[in-house]
Nucleic acid binder design. Sequence first.
DNA 1: TTTTATGTAGACAGATCTGTCTACACGGGC
DNA 2: GCCCGTGTAGACAGATCTGTCTACATAAAA
Lengths: 198, 198
Amino acid sequence: MKKTQEPRHPAEQSARARILQTAHDLFYQDGVRATGIDRIIEQAGVTKVTFYRHFPSKNDLIAAYLDYRHERWMTWFIDALGRVPRTAEFPLEPVVSALKEWFNTPEYRGCAFINGVVELDGIGPWVAEVTLRHKRDTTNAIANLLPAGERGMKAAQAAAMAVDGAIIRMQMEKKSAAALTLLELILRALCEACHLSG
Amino acid sequence: MKKTQEPRHPAEQSARARILQTAHDLFYQDGVRATGIDRIIEQAGVTKVTFYRHFPSKNDLIAAYLDYRHERWMTWFIDALGRVPRTAEFPLEPVVSALKEWFNTPEYRGCAFINGVVELDGIGPWVAEVTLRHKRDTTNAIANLLPAGERGMKAAQAAAMAVDGAIIRMQMEKKSAAALTLLELILRALCEACHLSG
DNA sequence: TTTTATGTAGACAGATCTGTCTACACGGGC
DNA sequence: GCCCGTGTAGACAGATCTGTCTACATAAAA
């Protein structure tokens, strides 16, 4: 079953996977509106017909891009949170560590979903919807670092919002890790205020 | 001196002012990239020649828009902060009140400068520069609510970053004032942690 | 009075972007 | 043996966007 999927280029990816991968890189790096279909087609090494057979319109590609991005980023984030030992004194420390890792990647250009909401507000309500799902999942991942219950959930939501602020900040300032130390200040204050640090 | 400025339409604004005003409304509401020159020209009631005499290129208009926006918003923000009585118990309360006012305006679509950085990253480094100026001025306005000194400044910077998070959050969620209560939670925690609440 | 700054009206060039179309090739399953 | 899914190559239509151009009008300044 499904051996028909990848016959053409045994070593390489299927045409669809190459398109999606290329679209991801270009959309994230240069922005969705600024990236034309032609450039994706050229860089992915496919033709227009092949492209439009897989993605009937650019909007379909954008939707697939956001899904793909969510999957990738979420997997990485949860893994990164787990790689740092949790301490009772500052249970949100893994959040700072994970973001530090992300912020230092050379291709960093902010949160694809925040960028999407800003750039693509007009093309449909589904952009805001997938973005809210993304932020909900992120909040849940943060909440898993805290004791279950009302207090932990409120703190996780606030922490996630502060993280968005840090993401934006880092996107503006490029250099300088000021965003990270400020975020740590906020998260420590939050943990204390919610009696979550021991 | 300068009586030449507004001769044509005594009751109305000068052509330049109308263009800038229209550009502001459309750029902020629909996004810069999504707004064509033709639409601004039409809605401002001027012609192409008039437009290009005042603004040699769209980028010049974008720059003027950001300057104009900064002036307007900053004036409003400082005024709004001053309208709320400061309490020693929670000195950052005016920030929450001011944002509440802003978030409830029907035309709210986030921070024009954050949107600009996301949308216009490619067109030149000056976008990030005016954005950083804007955020610095905002931070200073917040710092004026706090006692001068190292502690107050750090808290103001962290608060400004959290505010950015709330701005984004509100932009995604449209309805629901969750962003505001979360922001208040963060700011209260910050004030306590920095020993700024009495 | 002449010049200059400002304005109007609208055609046009040149680029770019999305999406469609024709024509052809090849491998696997029916 | 034949069809169908997937692939290639590239022309083309139609829309939109930025910016230029000609031709003309008018009020204030010199």
